[in-house]
Simulated assay, not measured.
Amino acid sequence: MPGISLRRARTIIRKTMDKGREMGLKPLSVVVVDAGGHVIAFERSDGAPAGRFDIALGKARGCVLMGMTGTQLRDRAEQQAYFVGAAGAALGDKLVPVPGGILVKDAKGRLLGAIGVTGDTSENDLEAGAAGIDAVGLVAEG
């Protein structure tokens, strides 16, 4: 079964952090989860608040468990707040429906997992995370 190796997850995180520094972003926190929403790797930049782990995890886990990007979840929340609220409750309040939650797929479109990036604006988090995924030859859907 395809998946994201620990080595590849660490590279995604490193390249996401590199892109964040290149963009001049605030300190980022990045988590990589597998297709079941289980944490493979996490890293928090120096100066990033400790609570960012839960936000990054909520972005990544929400995407992979709902099969939607963070951007799609945000749009759905704007249109149907009751649905996203109920989904969040069903997932144990582990759903953060904003950009920066990015599905990770292989070249054939198979879902491998997701990443959650947090620390700057959601749009900047998304851009940095997509660069990290692209750097390892996988497809970012955010």
Results as ranks from 00 to 15, higher is better:
92 G>Q: 12
58 G>T: 08
72 Q>N: 04
37 G>V: 11
32 V>M: 09
32 V>P: 04
100 G>S: 04
68 M>K: 09
77 A>F: 13
41 A>P: 03
135 A>K: 10
89 A>L: 14
102 I>D: 00
19 K>G: 00
134 D>W: 01
139 V>Y: 12
118 T>S: 05
20 G>Q: 07
86 A>S: 15
50 A>Q: 14
29 S>L: 12
44 R>S: 01
119 G>D: 07
96 V>M: 11
96 V>Y: 06
136 V>F: 08
88 G>D: 15
91 L>F: 13
132 G>T: 02
98 V>T: 11
44 R>T: 00
101 G>E: 08
93 D>A: 10
55 I>N: 03
96 V>S: 02
106 D>G: 04
61 R>I: 02
91 L>M: 14
60 A>V: 02
28 L>V: 04
50 A>Y: 11
69 T>I: 12
71 T>S: 04
105 K>Q: 10
111 L>N: 04
52 R>C: 13
30 V>L: 10
104 V>A: 01
50 A>F: 15
80 Q>K: 15
26 K>G: 00
79 Q>G: 07
132 G>D: 03
58 G>S: 09
127 E>S: 03
48 A>R: 11
11 T>Y: 12
41 A>N: 08
20 G>Y: 07
69 T>G: 14
107 A>K: 15
32 V>H: 05
120 D>T: 00
111 L>Q: 06
101 G>F: 13
55 I>D: 07
107 A>R: 15
16 T>L: 08
62 G>N: 10
107 A>L: 15
76 R>I: 03
27 P>V: 04
37 G>F: 12
95 L>C: 04
19 K>P: 01
87 A>Q: 07
45 S>H: 09
126 L>T: 02
53 F>L: 15
55 I>K: 01
